[in-house]
Design a protein around this nucleic acid. Sequence first.
DNA 1: CAGGTTATGGATCGGTCAGTCAAGTATCTA
DNA 2: TAGATACTTGACTGACCGATCCATAACCTG
Lengths: 193, 193
Amino acid sequence: MARPREFDTDAVLDAAMRTFWQRGYDGASLSDLTAATDVGRQSLYLAFGDKQHLYLAALDRYREHFFAPLVAALEQGADVRVTLREALLPILDGSCTDRPAGCMLVAAAADRAEEDPQVRVRVAVAFAGLEEALLEAAQRARIAGLVAHTVDLTGWAALTVATVQGLSVMAAAGTPRATLVRALDTALAVLHP
Amino acid sequence: MARPREFDTDAVLDAAMRTFWQRGYDGASLSDLTAATDVGRQSLYLAFGDKQHLYLAALDRYREHFFAPLVAALEQGADVRVTLREALLPILDGSCTDRPAGCMLVAAAADRAEEDPQVRVRVAVAFAGLEEALLEAAQRARIAGLVAHTVDLTGWAALTVATVQGLSVMAAAGTPRATLVRALDTALAVLHP
DNA sequence: CAGGTTATGGATCGGTCAGTCAAGTATCTA
DNA sequence: TAGATACTTGACTGACCGATCCATAACCTG
């Protein structure tokens, strides 16, 4: 060992994540990243490799901190409608000032998946996991009599994932909150018995 | 008058539209655009102004040629489910080789709306129009007894727009066709009486 | 045909990008 | 304390970006 790092890797990764989340991959320049992290160019390169790998690490951190908890809550048997609504409302409006609008994984799908296969895989795996968790949670709710028997739950899970993705894009694009919330509530109301 | 243009403005705009559609605003460099249109740099600038205005013109052309026909079909009383399905299926898979995957207006929302207010307005107006057309078409279908009385049509219209946007993003990101079609069909099935 | 006007194509501009290099500095181990 | 090791800093590289300049070519009008 020799001279230790002057920065905290987790904090730097968090700042980088928010920069990518807000501005996208191309929109976040190395200058933006060094400014946001308060870490020099070369130190970033030594610690994380190139820009692509820093982005992948930031995306993994996003999944771990913001996406996985939603999936975990669904898997642990939380109420589908309550869980989804609580998880998504902060995404939909700009009122949540501690984070950028929209879902970073959806943004990654929109502006990075086509060019970077590793991003494509991460996005696909994440949303496949969400869809599966939604399906199983809805099936449990049906057994408990909380969901109508006329709803095709497989289709509903796919529909809900697509809706969440659409809501995320339009939230980041500035669509009025009311429209987004109405769409979300309808998707949840479909389940009503 | 003096020397006339050597190129057809419509054809050039069409090529530029497809280039922006496929690669996004930042991803489409002027070199890409001159290559795709087979028109020189300076000629593009004289004919369309700068890159931003060329993009706006391309976006308007997209709306006119690909988006407006869907809205018009809905307004003219075509069957909601059939019209939506026919319009969206070509977007969802890569099998439609005559155009890039996904909806250009959704792509514009994702990667350009935040920076360009004119793009934001165009996106908002277009999807507000789609939502209104969907609502009115569903209301007419309900009167004709083709739609269940238990569905909140206002919410369904908002939900469907969000779903379409989500499908578009994930189609462009390479999500398997089957998942996308299932989500679309479920959104349409919600209307069933 | 002459004069004016516009389109074209190539060279080039300043600026920014991701990424690298090298010199200096701080810390650990022996 | 000496030397090895690793981090930091800032200047720098080549490539590409959007945009502009300019000389030339093509066309219309009078």
